[in-house]
Computed example of a mutant assay.
Amino acid sequence: MNQTLRSPHTFRSALALALLGLSLAGCALVTPPPSTGYLPANAFDGRVTGEDPAIAATNEARWAFSHPAAMQGRPAEMALAAASLDAMAGQFSTVGRWLGMNNLTKLQMLHARKVVRAELGIRPDTPSQTVIDALVTISLDLRHGDRKAALAAANGSEFTLPPRRTLAILAHFPATPVAERATAAASRDLYPGGSPPFFTR
């Protein structure tokens, strides 16, 4: 029986190609980091001065999702809370500052972001900054009494529902246990010794 003898060079080349293939396959399996965005400086409309923006956003989201009955009829506040949740869900999973945070909390926040986006009819693959900017604009417009501008802000391609429907959901946002648990867990990680301060409402 004839056998083809391979030179050491041929063998090394084949081995290198095999290792390269395994490496590329491994890269294909790596999940890309979650989309991450940040609240703009004017998101709180002057209500927060000198407070860490990440802490303020976490507090805002936690209060809103922990008190769904109190949020009824308050679409401006609800829009800000949803923006805050979207922002912190991404930041907790991608920013080095939060490397030591409980991984389960990070996953809960990302799951809560998906649920809240679905409730508002926001496309799940929308970049976080786009979602945040739209929701903060809606919040500020409503806070300043400009409903027409808020409707225009809710008319972007990231929204799948009619603008009036989006604002109606924000005004009567349903209880969302997933978001309540996630934001409570995040708050416990940030304030292991006790409860965080909340804004006067």
Rank of each mutant, 00 (worst) to 15 (best):
C27Q: 15
G156I: 01
D141W: 03
R188P: 06
Q72S: 06
G145F: 02
S128D: 03
S139G: 13
L120S: 04
P124S: 03
T31V: 13
N59C: 07
D189T: 01
L135F: 01
V136G: 02
L80I: 04
P192L: 07
C27L: 14
F199H: 11
L170V: 03
A56H: 01
G21C: 03
S128F: 01
D86F: 02
A185K: 09
R165A: 10
I55F: 05
T137Q: 13
T49R: 11
M1R: 06
R165W: 01
S84K: 14
K114Q: 15
T200I: 10
G193L: 14
A41T: 14
A70M: 09
L161F: 13
V136K: 04
L161E: 05
A64Y: 10
R62F: 10
A153M: 03
R6C: 13
L107M: 10
D86Q: 11
P32Q: 04
F11Y: 15
G50T: 08
T31R: 13
A184K: 09
A118H: 07
E60I: 04
D45G: 12
R201Y: 14
L85P: 13
H111L: 11
R97P: 04
T105Y: 05
A69G: 04
D45I: 12
M78Q: 08
T160E: 13
L104T: 14
A186W: 04
W98G: 04
P34G: 01
M78W: 00
A14Q: 15
G90P: 01
G194Y: 09
A41C: 09
A118F: 10
H111E: 11
A70C: 00
A64G: 06
V131G: 00
R201Q: 12
D86M: 07
T137A: 07
N103D: 11
T36Q: 05
M78I: 07
R74G: 00
W98F: 14
A28K: 05
D86T: 08
W63T: 08
F159D: 05
V136F: 04
A79Y: 06
W98P: 00
F198L: 15
R188C: 10
A153P: 03
L140Q: 06
R147S: 01
E77P: 04
L80G: 01
E119N: 10
F159M: 02
A149Q: 05
R113A: 07
V95F: 10
P196I: 13
N2V: 13
N103K: 10
M109I: 09
S187D: 10
A171Y: 05
L140W: 02
L142S: 02
V30H: 06
P8Y: 12
G145M: 03
L110H: 03
A64K: 05
P127T: 00
A81R: 11
A150E: 02
S23T: 13
